[in-house]
């Protein structure tokens, strides 16, 4: 049964992913127009009638703008408050996040005790990598997912968080959504292997936590991934 299961699962997941063919854009670069506005023209409809001498009168007229000035004043006071507050107390310090990339540094003294950290156990394999614009799980990860599914079914208290990642190209928020699709693909695979939904949370870190820095495919390939983290790690 198992031999049939994986190709079927992969086919199902692949079917859900559409590769987008690259096409050239049809956008027109418009020519730029001459700048129309000049002070002379601006003067015409405005207040050509007003004489330059009317200093006091005009300032009174400008006082009709008093309401605006008051509003401006309120905004200024508010802006000043923001700066003051922010400079003194508004900095919100937050605690560090442990990511999959950091698991190697976590509690190494337990390495012998837990199968999750035994390098000879497939459970220690926590990373799945992906092709460009794809959330399809590669066949090579089948054994790893089966090992995690078996462990989770046998350890009902264990929970995993699946962190999806994307490479850096394009919109950060769209990449967050792409990473989510990847982590949910792994979540669905685990559920199909019998893991209860409650033990798995699929999330995405988008392009924000790359494994490799660099603006080329070698780095991007490493960064398109899902990391499996057990609770407490």
């Amino acid at each position: 049964m198992k031999h049939l299961f994986w190709p079927a699962l992969l086919a199902a997941l692949l079917a859900g992913c559409s590769g987008a063919p690259s096409k050239d854009a049809l956008i027109e670069d418009r020519g730029v127009k001459a700048e129309p506005a000049k002070p002379q023209e601006a003067a015409k409809p405005a207040d050509a009638a007003k004489a330059a001498e009317a200093k006091a009168a005009e300032l009174k007229a400008a006082d009709a703008k008093a309401a605006e000035s008051k509003a401006a004043e309120a905004r200024k006071a508010e802006a000043a408050k923001v700066q003051t507050q922010a400079l003194t107390s508004a900095v919100t310090e937050v605690k560090p996040l442990q990511t999959g990339a950091a698991t190697g540094a976590v509690q190494t003294h337990n390495a012998a005790a837990s199968p999750l950290r035994d390098p000879n156990n497939p459970l220690s394999k926590r990373r799945l990598q992906y092709d460009y614009d794809s959330a399809a799980i590669k066949e090579e990860y089948g054994a790893i997912l089966e090992a995690h599914a078996k462990y989770l079914k046998g350890n009902k208290a264990a929970n995993v968080i699946l962190q999806g990642h994307a490479d850096e190209r394009g919109s950060r928020e769209y990449n967050l959504a792409l990473g989510q699709r990847r982590s949910e693909g792994v979540s669905k695979a685990l559920q199909l292997l019998g893991v209860p939904d409650a033990q798995v949370e699929a999330v995405s870190l988008g392009e924000e936590k790359p494994l490799a820095e660099g603006n080329e495919e070698a780095a991007w390939r490493q960064n398109r991934r899902v990391e499996i983290l057990y609770q407490g790690e």
Binding site: K50, A52, S69
Partner: peptide, 10 residues
Amino acid sequence: TSLLAMAYTT
């Protein structure tokens, strides 16, 4: 000519 005359208080 004059185009604008305004005052802000701050």
